[in-house]
Design a protein around this nucleic acid. Sequence first.
DNA 1: GAGCAAGCGGACCTCCATGTCTAGATTAAT
DNA 2: ATTAATCTAGACATGGAGGTCCGCTTGCTC
Lengths: 158, 158
Amino acid sequence: MEVRLLSQTTEYALRATICLAYRQEGLVSTSDLATMTKVPMNYLAKVLQLLARSNIVTGRRGVGGGYKLTRAAEEISMLDVINAIDPIHRIKTCPLGLDNHSGTLCPLHRKLDESIEMLINQFSGITMADMIGELGDIRPLCDEDMTTQVELTMSGKK
Amino acid sequence: MEVRLLSQTTEYALRATICLAYRQEGLVSTSDLATMTKVPMNYLAKVLQLLARSNIVTGRRGVGGGYKLTRAAEEISMLDVINAIDPIHRIKTCPLGLDNHSGTLCPLHRKLDESIEMLINQFSGITMADMIGELGDIRPLCDEDMTTQVELTMSGKK
DNA sequence: GAGCAAGCGGACCTCCATGTCTAGATTAAT
DNA sequence: ATTAATCTAGACATGGAGGTCCGCTTGCTC
């Protein structure tokens, strides 16, 4: 198969969180988020619940309900989102379960652990705020028309 | 679940290749490799076939048969092994399939692509030779007694 | 307070990575 | 030539990630 750095579900979670970061205030419904992120709606609902349990987003029920971030986009790192879905762990003990009480990993797992450490450092330094409009042009999710899309969705409802 | 940098199968492939690198010449049978790497034998057989198809190892059948590397350990990188099992791909186009002919990824996928690039660079610079006895003490796969284990296996058969 | 929009939660389905099993092909040794 | 060891190849089993569906709960709006 094909190596994916992140699981599909984690990708979905990141997309959704970025969309919510883009919409600074107000609630966004699951169905709107599903449209914008191109994630199957019923599945996205589950992903959002995971994010809610990790206190990254909060939902409100009822008419006009939806989700929003629990804190500022600057305060939410990629690592936060990743760990909410499927956490990254350093390699602490030998995966073969051999006697290595000394805590010294073999070269293979040492190198792998270094790579994981690198990724964690990388991801913990990137916030949701970095994901929206780093260029002059704002395009949160690849789509040049994200801005108008969001606005259309808003006006379509109001 | 839990994020794993590499798939289980890729881990297995690396372990096996490292064991073969350690045994500089001569053939090692699948069953010996399975014991040393702690990989289910029948599954390891499949993994070795994948490595053989990618020309990283060659097998010889019959009594006294087994596997060996096709070239020196210094000539086989981690990336070679990884790509033989499940290749790492850079992100070239938007995973959402949106109009981005310009070739410019959104911040999210740009960051992810950078991480992947980092990993590829890392992995392509590490060879199987780096995996055996980087420390004074030789311990290819976490096990301090790897050396004696291999020798035992050899003498046990001869 | 009735009705409806939306999140919540669980049951269920599907596919693929991982793993098992078995029969066949090849080679060395006797 | 026969036998035993070993790789090769494919069919089959299993568990978990990804995805669907439906009924329940909450809380607007009128």
